[in-house]
Every structure is written in structure tokens, then in C-alpha cells.
Design a protein around this nucleic acid. Structure first.
Length: 489
DNA sequence: AAAAAAAGCAACCGCCGGATG
DNA sequence: ACATCCGGCGGTTGCTTTTTT
């Protein structure tokens, strides 16, 4: 908008965030009232320079240490909504509009959540678009949603509808869910599509939020039974998934702050010299087995989260809830996720028979369940068959499991899951993630890696990992996981 | 062409929750 | 345990621009 170009605006002034009592009064050493109103190009440039120099975050300190006479909030908003380099300008495309409708039907007025599904778009843009649309359609007496989009949220302020979906196989079927249906279903592939985590076939990393593939055509090889809480029964129709942990493109997920500056490599669980209790690196494990035709000893592997291969990185904004014990369930609408069942028993007795399983659900909504044992005498040439058999067995057992209703805490990542994410993040040096992008991670702030980009990838990775541990058999309970890494600033 | 209405947009406000001391 | 800081989010306001009458 061409208003107030170049600094001559009559913007009003305000005190800090409209809360005079905070910070012990005005300005904290900069005893001037803060400016309000439209931003000028001069202010924009100052803000851009500051962010380039210091990175995102710490908006109030940014304000204090710059010539900007704006409150921190205002700076953050300006950056996120207008100055961020990843922003997509211009009108929404028809595809985006369609997606907004679908997302709103699913989430209600959860603008940040919706924005996380619209690369380059901000919550504010979406909110404005929607509000305008609402007014227009109300005036015309039209319904808010097209006939083919079914509203699934309770009301505009409600939590989204949740379906709890057990992983499992029903009879083989091929189902195509048209992209217009804002629901997806996780299928299981059984044989030819077994997904051993590839390495060489990994596509180069692409930020999911910047990809346009967030709405694939979902071709399912198997339909999954869905548990309908209303009827307490399973159904294969109208699957619905919900993102329970929004990851706004320009924001950080809850609890992220504790990681954002962490470049410390924390030891994995029980970092004993022989790594006997480390969680195995699933990918390396499989690759080792495939390449050497023998099953490696679990103790030779160390849990290396970077092995979550890039092709499996889900779209941002996804998360999954698992209920452990004898059963687990996906409760998510994410189009991609990865489930790991940690070896059982995850204990120091690595010499004894262990098994582990992995369920991968990739961006094409293809799921593969893989299980393996590390019995040292496992016939190598029967490896895949064995995996598949066990996967089948896993699927079958899952079908028998009772769904667990997640009640009030739908929006929060389960504590266990969060701890796992915490652990995983703490075990992986940032350099692994960004080596190809930025070189020296220790210099990430000044080498062009913004906090946002770091957050972004972190969010993806957090969302991509869901793990379970059977506490009954695993001496390493979540409580033994490393504490939140110390923030390094 | 002018006025009114609608649309578009930017920014602020208040609330909230997590982090921190 | 508490207070404070900080930042995210959703609601709202108000200004400008565009379209309609």
C-alpha cells in the first residue's frame, strides 16, 4: 500500500505493547514513547538490517539495540508479515483459496495452523482473506463452504475434530481420495512397496513448506479402519486427520525456544562406552543388513537422528499421537510421518534377541511397516520376507487394538513424544542438518542461517518423529532421557 | 464524475503460555 | 512458587484502494 511512504507518517506512539506496567515503565533506558502506525521504508530497512545481523527473535532487545522506535511485537509482526524473504506476495491462487476453505472447514479460525499449510502465506493474510470472504458471502446469503467441503470443526473457536486411526491392514483395496476431500488415510503397503529407508535415492532436501506438494492425490493401496469416537466403532470411510501441533511457517512450535540456539551435541541415552543401550540407527541398521547380508549387532549402532531420511520428512505442522503399551494409534492428519518402535527390550542386554519395527508413512501417503530382528543368525537372504511377515503381523495385531480416546489435551504433544523429540534434537548437532546449506553451524546466526530456517527444519524433524517405548520392558523410561539441552546463546 | 459501498490490507490489542530469574 | 519477560495467536480496528451505483 502506498501509504506513508518514506517516513513521513503521522504514526501515533505507544508504550511498550500497550502494557505500561510491564518492563517497569516506558522504554527501559530509551525513554521515548514507541511509534505506532504504518511502517516506513526506512524503518523496514533498519529492521531488515537488524535481522540480518542478529537473526530473528529477541525482538525487544532488537528494538532496544537499534534505532527502531517500535515495540518488539511490532517488529516481529512487520518481519513475519511483510519482510520475511520467504513470503509469497500477491493474491491467493485458486489452489490456495481452495486449500484455505478446506483448512478452515477442518480447523476453524486457526490462522496460524492454516498458514503452516500454505507456504509463504501468513496467518494475517489468511485471516484477512477469510474475513473478507465471510462478509461477502454473508451478504450474498451464500454458505461459507462449497457443497463438497464439509465442515469438521465444531465452531470457529473449537478444537478440530479428531479421529483416532489405528494402523493396520484391512482387505486390500485401492481407493483414491480426491484432493478436495480434506481428509486423508494412511494405507499400508505390504510387499513391493516396502520402504527400506533409502539413502542414495533421497531427494535433495527441500523445505516442505516451500514445496507445493502439500496436497497430493492420495492413492491408497489399503484402506485403514478408522475409529469413530462417536460410534465407538471402526470405519473405513471419511478418514480425518488433525494437525495437533501447528508449526507456523514463520513461527516456532511450542517449546521450541529451548532448542533454538542449541548447537550442543548431547549424548544419547546411557552413553556408555560400548553404546550398548543406545537406540540403533534404523537406517544404518537396515543398510548394514542389506549390504552385508547379515544382521549387525545392535550395539554397533548409535542412534543418529539425521538418519531420518529426507524423503520422509513430513510437511510442517504435522504431529502424531501414539498410545503405547500393547497398542498404538496414529491420531493425525499429517500426510507424512514416521513411526519408530524402539527396539524391545531397549536395554543393555543387547546380546539377547531384540526386535524393532519401523513404520514409515511417506509424503505420498504410502506406509510401510518394517520389522526386523537382530538375531545374529537370521538368514540374510530371507531378510525382506521376514520383515514383511513381521510387518504383517504387526498390522494384524494393530487391528485388534482398542483405540484410546484423547480427550482434552488434543492440542498438546504428548509428554512422552515431546521428550523424545527433545532427546532427538539434543542428540543431533545442527551441523548435520545444515552442513550442506551453511557450512559451519557454529556460526549459523551470522552465516545466513536465520533462526526461522533453523526452526523450520527443527519443526519438520520434530513432527517427523514419533516413537514409542514400552515402558514395561524398557528400563530407559522417558524420565531418563536427557533433560532439555542447555540453551547456548 | 461523485458518492457510497465493498474489498483489501496493515497494524494494534489483549490474552495466553512458555521461559527465566 | 511467584513475578516478569517474551513472543505467538486470534480478534479487531481503521485506513486506503477499488468497485459499484
Amino acid at each position: 500500500m502506498a501509504q506513508n511512504i518514506d517516513g513521513i507518517n503521522g504514526g501515533a506512539v505507544c508504550n511498550i505493547e500497550g502494557r505500561p506496567s510491564e518492563s517497569g515503565g516506558l522504554m527501559e533506558g530509551n525513554n521515548k514513547a514507541l511509534k505506532k502506525g504504518p511502517w516506513t521504508t526506512v524503518e523496514d530497512q533498519i529492521l531488515i538490517d537488524c535481522v540480518r545481523k542478529h537473526g530473528e527473535g529477541n525482538w525487544n532487545s532488537l528494538r532496544r539495540n537499534s534505532r527502531l522506535n517500535r515495540c518488539g511485537k511490532s517488529c516481529r509482526l512487520r518481519w513475519a508479515n511483510h519482510l520475511h524473504p520467504n513470503l509469497k506476495k500477491g493474491a491467493f491462487s485458486p489452489e490456495e483459496e481452495r486449500l484455505i476453505l478446506q483448512l478452515h472447514a477442518k480447523y476453524g479460525n486457526k490462522w496460524a495452523r492454516m498458514a503452516s499449510q500454505l507456504p509463504g502465506r501468513t496467518d494475517n493474510e489468511i485471516k484477512n482473506y477469510w474475513n473478507t470472504r465471510v462478509k461477502r458471502r454473508q451478504r450474498k446469503g451464500l454458505p461459507q463452504y462449497p457443497h463438497d467441503i464439509k465442515q469438521s470443526h465444531f465452531h470457529s473457536h473449537s478444537q478440530p475434530t479428531t479421529s483416532i486411526i489405528p494402523i493396520g491392514l484391512t482387505q486390500p483395496a485401492t481407493t483414491t481420495i480426491p484432493p478436495t476431500v480434506p481428509s486423508i488415510c494412511f494405507p499400508f503397503h505390504t510387499s513391493s512397496q516396502t520402504h527400506l529407508p533409502p539413502n542414495s535415492t533421497n531427494p535433495s532436501h527441500q523445505s516442505p513448506a516451500l514445496s507445493s506438494s502439500h496436497q497430493p492425490e492420495f492413492t491408497l493401496n489399503h484402506s485403514l479402519p478408522l475409529f469413530d469416537p462417536a460410534t465407538s466403532s471402526f470405519s473405513t470411510s471419511e478418514p480425518a486427520f488433525n494437525f495437533h501441533h501447528p508449526t507456523p511457517m514463520l513461527g516456532s512450535p511450542l517449546g521450541y525456544r529451548q532448542y533454538r540456539d542449541n548447537v550442543v551435541f548431547s549424548p544419547p541415552i546411557s552413553p556408555t562406552p560400548n553404546r550398548s543401550s543406545s537406540i540403533p540407527d534404523v537406517v544404518s541398521y537396515q543398510q548394514f543388513a542389506a549390504s552385508t547380508n547379515c544382521m549387525p549387532d545392535m550395539s554397533s549402532f548409535q542412534f543418529q537422528p539425521q538418519s531420518f531420511n529426507e524423503s520422509l520428512v513430513p510437511f510442517p505442522g504435522t504431529s502424531t499421537q501414539i498410545d503405547f503399551g500393547d497398542s498404538f494409534f496414529i491420531k493425525s492428519e499429517l500426510p507424512s510421518c514416521k513411526l519408530l518402535q524402539i527396539p524391545e527390550p531397549l536395554s543393555s542386554q543387547v546380546s539377547q534377541t531384540q526386535s524393532w519395527s519401523e513404520i514409515i508413512i511417506d509424503g505420498n501417503i504410502n506406509a510401510t511397516a518394517v520389522m526386523a530382528t537382530n538375531e545374529t543368525h537370521c538368514a540374510s537372504n530371507g531378510f525382506l520376507e521376514e520383515l514383511l511377515q513381521e510387518a504383517e503381523a504387526l498390522n494384524n495385531s494393530l487391528l485388534e487394538m482398542k483405540p484410546v480416546q484423547d480427550h482434552e489435551n488434543e492440542m498438546s504433544m504428548p509428554e512422552d513424544l515431546f521428550k523424545l523429540s527433545n532427546f532427538i534434537l539434543s542428540t543431533e548437532p545442527v551441523s548435520h542438518w545444515y552442513s550442506s546449506d551453511i557450512g559451519d553451524p557454529s556460526n549459523s546466526q551470522s552465516s545466513g542461517v536465520t533462526e526461522t530456517s533453523l526452526k523450520f527444519d527443527m519443526q519438520q524433524r520434530m513432527a517427523s518423529v514419533v516413537a514409542s517405548i514400552d515402558n514395561d520392558r524398557v528400563p530407559h523410561s522417558w524420565d531418563n532421557l536427557p533433560e532439555t539441552p542447555v540453551e547456548v546463546s
